[in-house]
Structures are given as structure tokens and as C-alpha cells.
Simulated scan of single mutants.
Amino acid sequence: MSTIFDVCKLAGVSTATVSRVMNGTGQVKESTRQKVFSAMEQLGYRPNQLAQSLASNKTHTIGFVVSQFDGAYTGFILKQASICVDKAKKQLIVTDCHNDPEFEYETVRQLENRCDAIVLYSRTLSNEHLRKLYNQMNTPLVLINRTLPEQLFHTVTFAQEEAATMMMNHLIGYGHRNIACITGPLDNPTGKSRMAGYVNTLKKHAIPYRSCLVKNSDYQIEGGYNACKQLIEDKIPFTALFAFNDYMALGALKALNEADIKVPDQVSIAGIDNNLFSAYASPGLTTIELPIEAMTKKAVELAIDLITHEHKSSAHQFKGKLIQRESVKPCRAMNNWFSL
């Protein structure tokens, strides 16, 4: 079995240089880095991670905790996290907490001694849970999608209310006043913020809020489908439907198609996320792009930096972008599917 000394001999460098190359630390010329990697490959040398951890008092591991694995959306987040971690020559531990806040809290605590830093993408933890983590943990923790009134953690967030407001202004600007809404759960910050965007924009334009046009769901395609079916069965007139994410919008699109209600000729439909399927729906889905790639990259890079550097807690907020496709049409150009 080859050792680090064999690598040094073949590459013609010191053990300190090989160590810097493997750990990605210090200044090493690119030509020297390539010599070391070439020697490692020729010798089949693999660093002993346990020995490195004991020597440096570091695990070279980043924890990534999500409230729930949520199809392609979560997969995209974890892919970006993996790219960032690989680039830093570290390992990634990923945990799904099944939307259970107590399990999520305990998971973060258990990862503390196994990881050098943790990224938490939480939809379920209460503010009290987060404050307890702040008081109990020494390991750096970066939050995605969550904030506290007090800036205890480094946070990476999306302007949720602004995104909903942007879409509502777009629909109202196209002449829609009877706008149905399919929400996600309203017991968490994301749902509350998007609902505030819906309600406050109606109020700003002097459009009455009508609870009969609002159906609560679960961010899943089937949930959007069932909620839209209920709206249709209630026979309450609406010319546009705003779903709190693209999956529910796609489910609603199926329900409308089954009812022979044409999109966008009779009902306009819009979502939030700009997920992988939105552009390939028929018609293409108008949505708000959530820059999750940039958000994940920022959060993981912050976590990695906090392993070796202390910084005052900071907030980083990302904004959405309106993506206009074929699923929204001016109200005046539409054929009603009901009699107003």
C-alpha cells in the first residue's frame, strides 16, 4: 500500500506540499498540484480520512438537513450542494427529516459532532427550536429559507412575499380580478409570506378578498389537482388561478383540462419556482423563478468559510424573477367558462 511519502518521492515535493494539495489549503502552484495528483493516481494513493480528521481536529464533512425530500426540487438543491462541497474537497452528509420538527431538531444536534458545519433548509422548525440551537451548538449553522427577528445565524432567504406580490401584480395588470389561489400549508413562514403577498396585493388594488377562492394544499401535484377540482365544483367564477408553487399549478392544469376548461383561453394559471417541468407544460407555465442554485451555493460556501473564519451573523436575501410563458392571457381576450 502506498503512503504519503511515496507520493512525495514520486512528485519530488515535501510532505507539507502534498498535505496542502490534499486539503486545498495554502499557496501551491498549479504545476505542482498536477504533479501531486498525477503521483497519487499512479500509485493508487487515497488519503486516510480518519487520520486526517484526528490530526486536524476536523471531519472535513458538511451536514445538509432538509425538512423533506421533495422530488426534483430537493434533488436540484442537493446536486448544487454536492458540487460546492466537492470543490472544497469535503464530504456531504444529507438527512431527510420527514417534515417532523422534533426529529429535525434532534438531527441537527446529532450532526454537530460529525460535521464541521451544517446547512439547514427548514420549513418546519419553530423560532423557539432555532433559538435553542443557537444557545446549544458550537458548530457553524447556516439557515436557508428561515429568518428570526434577531439575526442569530447566517441566513440565505428568498423574498417570498415579494414573489407572490410580483405574480399578483402581473395577473391584475392583465385585467384579472377574480383570482383563485391554491396555497401551501399556512403554518410556516413560506406559506404565511406568500399568502400575505396574495391578500395585500388584492387590497392594494381595491379587490375584495374572498375566502371561497382560496384552497389550502400541500405543494404536491396531486394536492394542486384536488384543490382545483374543488374550485371547479364550487362553481365560483375565476379567470385566473395562482398556485403557491409550480407542482400545484401543474396539478391544477390537469384538473382544468379534464373539466374542458381551456388554459389560457378561459383561465390563466401561474405558479412560483420555475421548476424543471414548467417550460415543458402545455401551455408553458408563467411563474416566478426562485434562484435556488445561487441560494444553495451561497449557503454552502458560507458554511465552508465559517469552519475556519468567524464572521458576524449576516443575512443574504435573493429575489425572484417573472418568467412569462403561455399560460397567462389578458382577461379581456378570454372566453369565460362560466356566466358572471
Rank of each mutant, 00 (worst) to 15 (best):
Tyr198Val: 07
Gln266Arg: 03
Ala243Ser: 11
Glu106Asn: 08
Asn23Phe: 02
Gln324Ser: 12
Met167Lys: 05
Phe158Gln: 03
Gly197Ser: 10
Asp86Glu: 15
Arg109Glu: 01
Asp96Leu: 04
Lys235Met: 13
Thr308Asn: 12
Ala252Gln: 09
Thr61Gly: 02
Gly284Val: 13
Phe158Gly: 10
Arg177Asn: 14
Thr239Lys: 12
Gly251Lys: 01
Val28Phe: 00
Arg177Gln: 15
Arg46Asp: 09
Thr296Glu: 15
Leu186Cys: 09
Gly71Ala: 02
Asn99His: 04
Arg46Tyr: 14
Lys9Glu: 07
Trp337Cys: 01
Leu186Gln: 13
Glu162Gln: 15
Pro47Ala: 10
Thr296Asp: 10
Lys204Asn: 10
Ser339Cys: 13
Gly173Phe: 07
Thr17Asn: 12
Lys79Gln: 12
Pro264Leu: 04
Gly44Arg: 14
Tyr134Thr: 00
Ile288Lys: 05
Gly320Asn: 11
Ala294Glu: 14
Cys331Pro: 01
Leu141Asp: 01
Gly24Phe: 07
His205Val: 13
His176Trp: 02
Lys319Leu: 10
Tyr105Trp: 06
Lys9Phe: 08
Asp218Pro: 02
Asn99Gly: 09
Arg46Phe: 11
Thr32His: 02
Lys87Ser: 14
Asn48Tyr: 06
Met168His: 01
Thr25Gly: 04
Gln42Gly: 00
Tyr209Thr: 11
Cys115Arg: 08
Leu322Asp: 09
Val7Phe: 06
Glu128Asn: 11
Leu302Glu: 06
Ala315Cys: 13
Leu54Gly: 02
Val66Arg: 03
Leu171His: 10
Thr59Gln: 08
Ser339Ile: 05
Lys132Gln: 14
Lys192Ser: 07
Ala55Pro: 04
Asp265Gln: 11
Lys254Phe: 06
Ala299Ile: 01
Phe5Trp: 13
